[in-house]
Design a protein around this nucleic acid. Structure first.
Lengths: 276, 276
DNA sequence: TCGCTTTGTTCCATATACTGGAACAGTACT
DNA sequence: AGTACTGTTCCAGTATATGGAACAAAGCGA
C-alpha cells in the first residue's frame, strides 16, 4: 500500500473517547460550536465514511442536530458528502486550518535536522509532539528509510498515559500542571490506573535521573520507545520527542543509546528556541 | 531558520479573503458554527498571535462575539491563549482534525513513491493537492534535497487562478463543475480576470493536447511550475500534482521534461487508485 | 507619576437561532 | 409488494446567542 513503511501501522485504532462531553454549561461556551467540532472529532483515522446516524451515535447528539451541523460543515469544506453512500468524510479545509498551526511552530524547523540524524538508525521513527487533551499529537515525524518501521504521520496521536512520549511530556510540565493532567488521566482511566500510575512515576524518576525514559510495549505490543521532554524557552510551551520502533530492532540497549542522543539533541533544540 | 529549504518561502502571505462570508441565511446552516470556524480561518500562516480585536476586525464579527468564540475554541484546544500578550494562536487540536482527513487519503501513499522520484531533480518540489474553496491545498509534498528549493508544507495553499497546479485541477474537473468554479473565481477576482481567464483557457488547451500545463512566474515571481490533473478512480475525486521551483533552475525545457514524467506518473497513480 | 487612549471582557435585555420529537421520504433487504 | 431501517425536513417552544454599552486593564505619552 505505502512504500514508506509497510507493516506496523501506528495510526490509532478506535479510541472510543467520542461522546460530546457536554459541558456542565459554562455560560461562556458556545454550545453550537462545541457540538459542530465534536462532529468533526467523531471521525477516526480508520473509518471511511460516517453517516449522520453513525455520527449521532458517536457524539450522542440527536439525529436532527447532526444533520444540520454536518450540512454546515460540508458547506464550509470541512466535510465532504458522498451522495452515493450518503456518508460524510473529513474535507480538505481541515488541512488549511492545521496549516495555520504548523506554520507558526518554529520548533519543527529547529528540531528537524536533529530528528533526521536520529532516524538514521534502522527501524527508528522520530516524533516531535504536542499535547491535545490526553494525547500527544505528532507535529513532526521522520522515519528511518528501512522496510520495517513505525508509520507515524503528522497529526497521529498517542495516549499520554502509556507511552514514553507521554511520560516525557509530563516530566516537562511544572508540578502543579502535571498533577492536574494526571488527575484528568486518572478520571479517564479505570481499573488500570494503579499500574499506569506506577509506570508514570517510575518514568518521571528516570527522566529526573538520566534525562530520558522508556516504554516497552505498553502502548502497542512489540513497539518500544524512548523519549525526552522539550521546553521551548520563548513560548514556555512543552513538547516531547521520541524514538520508537519494533521491539526486535530496538532492544533496551539500543533505546538507552538513543536516549543519550535524545538528551543531547534536547539541549541544542532548547537553546535554539531561546535565540530565535 | 530552517535547515530544509532556505530562501523562497512558499507559504502564503496575507491573502485577505477573511471576512465571515455571512451567508444569505440558508436556514439549514448553523450560524454559530460558521462563525466559530471563521475565527479559526482568520489565522494566516505568518501572523504570530491574534488578539480578539484583530480577529474581530478580520472576521467582521463584533468583539463580544469573538470573545466568547475564542474562549470556546481555547477550551477545546483549537486555540491557545497567550495570557501574557493576550493573544491567541492556533492549537494542536487542529492537527488531530486534519489527521482524520489525511489518514483516509489513500492517494497520498500511492503517489508518494512517484513524487520522490520526481523530486530527485535539483530544486524541484513536488506537490499533491486537493481543492479547498478557491485554493489548492497541499496534501503531500516532497522536496529536492538541495539548498535552494520551494518550501511547501502540508496544508499550504496556492490559488487555483494563477498556478499550474490550479489549472491542472480545473482540467481534471468535468465541464459543468469546472465552469461553476471558474465563475466563482471570476466573482472573486477583479480587473485581472480577462488576463487570468486567457491563461487558464490556454492551459486547459495545453493539457488537452500534451497532458500537462505550465506557469511561469504568474503566482510568485521567479517561481515556475508544471502540473497534471489526477482523478481518483474510486472516489471520483480530483487532485492535481505539480513540480515547482525557482525559475533559474527550471527553465521551460526542464519543465517540459518534468511534464512528460508527470503525465506518466499520473497514469500509474490513477490505475493504482482503481485497484485499491 | 498621572491621566489618556486603546484594547479585552463582562453584563443583560432582546429576539434570534437552535432544539429535538415526530412526521416524511428514500433505500435496501426479505 | 411489504418491511425495516436510515436520513432529512418540519415546526412550535425555548434555551441560547447576540451585540451595544459599561467596565476593567494595560500601554503610552506628557
Amino acid at each position: 500500500m505505502s512504500d514508506r513503511g509497510i507493516g506496523l501501522p501506528a495510526e490509532e485504532a478506535e479510541l472510543p473517547e467520542g461522546a460530546a462531553t457536554e459541558q456542565g454549561c459554562d455560560p461562556r461556551l458556545a454550545t453550537t460550536l462545541i457540538r459542530g467540532l465534536s462532529v468533526l472529532r467523531a471521525f477516526r483515522a480508520r473509518d471511511s465514511g460516517l453517516t449522520n446516524g453513525e455520527i449521532s451515535r458517536r457524539t450522542g447528539l440527536p439525529k436532527a442536530t447532526v444533520s444540520r451541523l454536518s450540512y454546515t460543515l460540508t458547506h464550509l469544506g470541512y466535510l465532504q458528502h458522498d451522495v452515493q453512500r450518503g456518508s460524510y468524510n473529513p474535507g480538505p479545509g481541515l488541512l488549511t486550518l492545521a496549516h495555520a498551526y504548523l506554520a507558526q511552530m518554529d520548533i519543527r524547523a529547529i528540531a528537524h535536522p536533529f530528528m533526521e540524524r536520529l532516524a538514521e538508525m534502522p527501524g527508528v521513527t522520530v516524533s516531535l509532539a504536542a499535547r491535545d487533551r490526553l494525547n500527544l499529537v505528532t507535529i513532526e515525524a521522520v522515519m528511518a528509510d528501512t522496510p520495517i518501521n513505525l508509520r507515524v504521520n503528522i497529526g497521529a496521536r498517542a495516549p499520554i498515559a502509556v507511552t514514553a512520549l507521554g511520560h516525557a511530556y509530563l516530566a516537562g510540565l511544572k508540578a502543579p500542571v502535571r498533577e492536574a493532567v494526571l488527575a484528568e488521566i486518572q478520571a479517564d482511566s479505570e481499573a488500570a490506573w494503579p499500574k499506569t500510575e506506577a509506570l508514570i512515576r517510575a518514568n518521571l524518576a528516570a527522566i529526573a535521573e538520566q534525562g530520558y525514559c522508556m516504554a516497552l510495549g505498553e502502548w502497542r505490543a512489540q513497539i518500544n520507545g524512548v523519549a525526552v521532554p522539550i521546553r521551548s524557552l520563548e513560548g514556555q510551551e512543552v513538547f516531547a520527542m521520541s524514538c520508537g520502533g519494533p521491539a526486535q530492532l530496538l532492544p533496551k540497549s539500543a533505546l538507552a543509546a538513543l536516549g543519550q542522543e535524545l538528551v543531547a539533541a534536547r539541549k541544542e533544540i532548547e537553546r535554539a528556541t531561546g535565540t530565535q
